[in-house]
């Protein structure tokens, strides 16, 4: 049983989120401004915070900053602004994730699950020794011996081709591969117009790996260049 704090100045949104989260079996606390939220966090054991950015009083960013002084619990920001600069600002101030309004409730739930797994399960696994065959980046883990892939501890089923592509990109995380290059390295054939299939495979991987494939966090499309596995995409690691 996890405790989740919902903080938004719009009571209807708080109520709606409460319904969804309660239905998933979480216990919720509600706050309607930043100060209340900080008070609740000080008093109760909170595992995750859903925080609105634009609030009267201390806004979401100020609240996050204040929160980070004492605690490292996951914070997911909710905001109406969708500009990239706002996202970067939010993540760099200490938030773990970012959801833009109007959001899809299912996506909120998926992100909450993901963050809780990372906070509770993987956090305890840091002491574990890692097998050399395991590559782990930002919660995505592939085990080359067992040929398995997990995202925040959840297993993901990939086809052999998809697995090879993901392995290639994770081994060289941060490096951009063009589809022709990926084809040559994975299929081990010269790419003669067969690159079209690469893009489709990558989309499939993204659909399995990402919570919102339209806004990927791990497997990024570098438009007009190729694809890369994002390294250190989250605010903190």
């Amino acid at each position: 049983m996890y405790n989740i704090l919902i903080c938004d100045d719009d009571r209807d949104i708080v109520a709606a989120l409460k319904i969804y989260l309660t239905a998933e079996g979480y216990h919720t606390f509600e706050a309607y401004n930043g100060n209340d939220a900080l008070g609740i966090i000080a008093r109760e054991t909170i595992h995750l915070v859903l925080l609105d950015v634009m609030m009267p009083g201390p806004d979401g960013l100020a609240t996050t900053a204040a929160l980070r002084e004492k605690s490292n619990i996951p914070v997911i920001l909710l905001t109406a602004k969708s500009e990239d600069t706002d996202k970067v600002l939010g993540l760099s101030i200490g938030a773990d994730d970012y959801i833009t309004k109007p959001f899809n409730p299912m996506e909120v739930l998926a992100r909450v699950r993901s963050q809780l797994r990372r906070y509770t399960m993987l956090g305890g696994m840091h002491g574990m020794e890692k097998k050399p065959s395991i590559i782990s980046i930002d919660g995505v883990e592939i085990d080359d011996e067992a040929k398995t892939v997990t995202v925040d501890g959840e297993p993901v089923n990939l086809t052999p081709i998809e697995y090879s592509i993901l392995k290639l990109l994770m081994e060289h995380a941060g490096k951009v591969f063009s589809s022709a290059r990926i084809y040559e390295l994975v299929w081990k054939d010269p790419a003669w117009g067969a690159e079209n299939t690469v893009a489709v495979h990558i989309r499939h991987i993204r659909e399995k790996l990402e919570i919102n494939p339209a806004e990927p966090r791990y497997l990024k499309v570098v438009w007009g260049q190729g694809y890369k596995f994002e390294k250190g995409c989250k605010g903190k690691q």
């Binding site: 063009s178 589809s179 079209n196 893009a199 990558i202 989309r203 499309v221 007009g224 260049q225």
Partner: peptide, 17 residues
């Protein structure tokens, strides 16, 4: 510098489904 061929392939792949 952007490769129009790669970009078009990527975009079409996104819309394949």
């Amino acid at each position: 510098p952007t490769d129009a061929v790669e970009l078009l392939r990527q975009c079409v792949a996104e819309y394949e489904g």
